[in-house]
């Protein structure tokens, strides 16, 4: 099997592209940074890749709403390309702004024909951007490829609009029952829970402490925290206290993606 190729999608305002590419390469993949305009010119372009990654940043400045404008570009021009990519058994990962885009474009959770989107990522309860490290736990039974074998992660978050809100309690329950709410904010030793944790364990007020969501296949995954910012022990906030390990927790997410293709 040749080295899996990762398409890191850049848009105006994307800013975690380089370190995300670095993380995929540390995991054994080969990553290319590709501008959204190239995809719009040639929607077949992703066909040459095994993983499509939407990295963090502020696509189009997050003007109007975080990720909204890029999400609409995908809805209007690339829905088919994304569907084809998914149906070919490939992987899609959205980190932070990429998660916002995947959710708001309907790639992660399809819209209801009448009521529209089932869930969103909106303003943190604090009302502002916040950077801090969060303890994360994975849901007990899930099919998410990226989180295979992972129980806990310690990763930084850095966002203003990361509060996960479902359109109704029923939808939230359904998503949970389907094992889609795969990554939750937690406590250092805690187990995944739907009972909202208080700040700062749940840093943004997300319903059911949701930090990451997978699609029904487990091959499309979006999360607010930044795994690419913890692939090395020196990135751990307390490495000088002897905490953290080499490699950092986040690398496993990228390794899972690369290994899925047989490496």
């Amino acid at each position: 099997m040749p080295t899996p190729r990762i398409l890191i999608l850049r848009a105006p305002g994307t800013n975690c592209d380089r370190e995300t590419a670095f993380a995929f390469e540390q995991a054994g993949g080969q990553a290319d940074l590709v501008h959204i305009n190239r995809l719009l010119e040639d929607p077949q372009l992703p066909d040459r890749y095994q993983v499509l990654c939407l990295p963090g940043g502020f696509s189009y400045g997050d003007d109007v709403a975080a990720g909204r404008i890029l999400a609409n570009q995908i809805r209007h021009h690339l829905a088919e390309a994304f569907t084809r990519f998914k149906e070919a058994g490939k992987l899609i990962l959205g980190i932070c702004n990429g998660f916002q885009v995947l959710l708001k474009s309907g790639v992660l959770i399809p819209d209801d024909p009448v009521d529209g989107p089932s869930a969103t990522l909106t303003w943190n309860d604090s009302g502002r951007f916040e950077a801090r490290w969060s303890y994360l736990v994975t849901a007990p039974a899930h099919a998410c490829v990226f989180l295979a074998g992972i129980e806990r992660l310690y990763l930084p978050i850095a966002h203003a609009e990361g509060k996960f809100v479902a359109r109704s309690p029923d939808i939230l329950r359904q998503l949970g029952a389907q094992g889609r709410l795969v990554l939750r904010y937690g406590t250092p030793q805690g187990v995944p829970t739907d009972v909202p944790l208080s700040f700062p364990d749940n840093p943004n007020g997300s319903e059911a402490n949701v930090a990451g969501v997978a699609d029904a296949t487990g091959r499309v995954f979006g999360l607010m925290p930044h795994p690419e910012r913890h692939i090395h022990r020196l990135q751990h906030p307390r490495w000088t206290r002897g905490e953290g390990q080499e490699p950092g927790d986040g690398l496993a997410v990228f390794r899972n993606a690369v290994r899925y293709f047989g490496l």
Binding site: N15, C16, R18, E19, E130, A131, P156, R229, R238, T240
Partner: peptide, 20 residues
């Protein structure tokens, strides 16, 4: 400090806030 992203680009070694 927490309103600033101090870790983007992935090179952070000693952060502005440290300790237990």
């Amino acid at each position: 400090i927490r309103q600033y992203d101090h870790e983007v680009q992935g090179g952070s070694v000693v952060k502005p806030l440290v300790g237990a």
